[in-house]
Nucleic acid binder design. Sequence first.
RNA 1: GCCGAGGUAGCUCAGUCGGUGAGAGCGAUGGAUUCAUAACCCAUAGGUCGGCGGUUCAAGUCCGCCCCUCGGUACCA
Length: 573
Amino acid sequence: MRNIIMKDKTLVTAALPYANGKPHVGHIAGAYLPADTYVRFLRLMGKDAVFVCGSDENGAPITFSAIKEGVTPQDIVDRYHAVLSESFKGLGIDFDYYGRTHCEKHNGISQEFFTTLHDKGHVVKRSSEQVYCTECNMFLPDRYIEGNCPHPDCKKPGARGDQCESCGRPVDATKLEDPVCMVCKQSGREGKGCIEVRETTHWYLRLDAFEKDLRAYLDLHPEWRESVKRFSYGLLDQGLRERCVTRDLDWGIPVPLEEAEGKVLYVWFDAPIGYITFTRQYLESLGKEEEWKDYWYNQDNGLVHFIGKDNTVFHAVMFPGMMMAHGDYRMPDTVVSNEFLNLEGDKISTSRNYAVWVNEYLEAFSPDPLRYYLTAIAPENSDSDFSWQGFQNRNNGELADNLGNFIQRNLAFCNKYFEGKVPPAENISDAGKELLEEIEKTRTELAELFDGHRYRDALERIMLLSRKGNEFFSAEEPWKSRKDDMAKCGATIYTCMMVIEALSVFMSPILPFSAAKLRECLNIPALSAGDWNTDAVLKSGHTINTPEVLFPKIDDAMIEEQVAKLTPKAKAE
RNA sequence: GCCGAGGUAGCUCAGUCGGUGAGAGCGAUGGAUUCAUAACCCAUAGGUCGGCGGUUCAAGUCCGCCCCUCGGUACCA
């Protein structure tokens, strides 16, 4: 048996979604759903958990979207902040606080963070040459310049300022041939067009100074997912470099230095600080001004970050490096990182509009089937694939036919032949006793799986219990015993009811809506903190309510409708 | 190019420190049954474990080379 590693008090964060697009199933599977599941689990275990997140509203792409649409950056972030909040809410991703980084409080905390690093000498000034667009009147991120590859043996078009798409090699943005600004789509070099090279000044975080400490920190966490460790050690082995933490932009958090007029903090510098900001805002809203320190200063408590793999470098190396450099804060315990979710075999792409958007999903279906499916195919160890066919199969074959039907056949049987009263807990057969023991085995193993962030396995374990319930029910044949041996029949149904109550607890972190509905059908109280280990409240003689179908089947037409929404654009590429 | 991950039954994937006849779910086929959302239960299916070579008494499981897919490559977030 492994050791349970959760703490009595834990701060859980989910990667801040960038407020420049709607959330899709990939985002949900990557960070938000596992984080929400974990928080629900912690609370069932009677632990204190605070769950924060918020929209990431700074950065260059938001500015560019605003330019493209002819609106202000504020318009962009307002729009997406609203969609993001609603989507999370609709799926039952239940943050204690969902904030936004474009606010005074966050500016102040981020600037204080920067100032501390600057005063300690961990941030240094450097000058460099960057590409500037005179049409847009701004410096361009390397990614936003396209041209011909400067490598003599390649020369192919479509190379970006950071990397050539054709030969895959890194590119020096200032050396791209025939560069085009991807914001205004204009081109031409010095004098003859809008693209020119200008000198600029920026501030760099001396990550290299913390290389040894970061390695020691990683060494303390053998329990992290393999992919995160391999990636992080890989970076350390290459040697950490200074990392630029400011940008030439007018949208963002001003760099708190007189000589840094017109510069803002790099969005990835302030985004993780958002976790601190949101924790403070949440606890202040509860009138507990000082309590955030429990989570950010006290290493005895838990701090767990949930992210997608694209965020690994920031959460496993850069943010910990920032925390070390600052000095006041505790270090994160765990970074739970997921791989990517593909869609019908192809990459999900916001820019190509190739995705299953959460808000559109919710117009057609209830949240739990998606939570179920995304957990079942969670990209925990490697990329996985979302397919509508798979969604339908899992929903109909597993949720409805296995779990739903097990519940349904028992509640219906109980109503029909026992007047809705839980039968006496007598004459339990050996197989029945074995099944009751299986409940406890599941309880123990499941806690370890949730605690170890193995949600996919956890769900499988839950379904195994349901399957065993079905096997038991069929083997006992209560439809026969009800005619000549009501004692045996009652024992069968009683045993199954115990399984069902346990399932209502076990499934609740993943399927919160259905778990609540099930407990209503059972006519027992809603779950509350610490109920994971509470004794069964379902007793002999207790009257249940009329059952309702928990997991309706999804018919082909509904799936075809979704597939149709997807295909034209996917093929249009 | 460099670094990393992956290529296991029709499909989706498990396979811990190398060792009982290589597994699960779905699908397919046959059987049983009627409490239930035509659901459930039982049985069966023989896949050169990407290719070649090597180490070993023994290799999906270790080593080398090769092929294919996918990420990262630090100014997209």
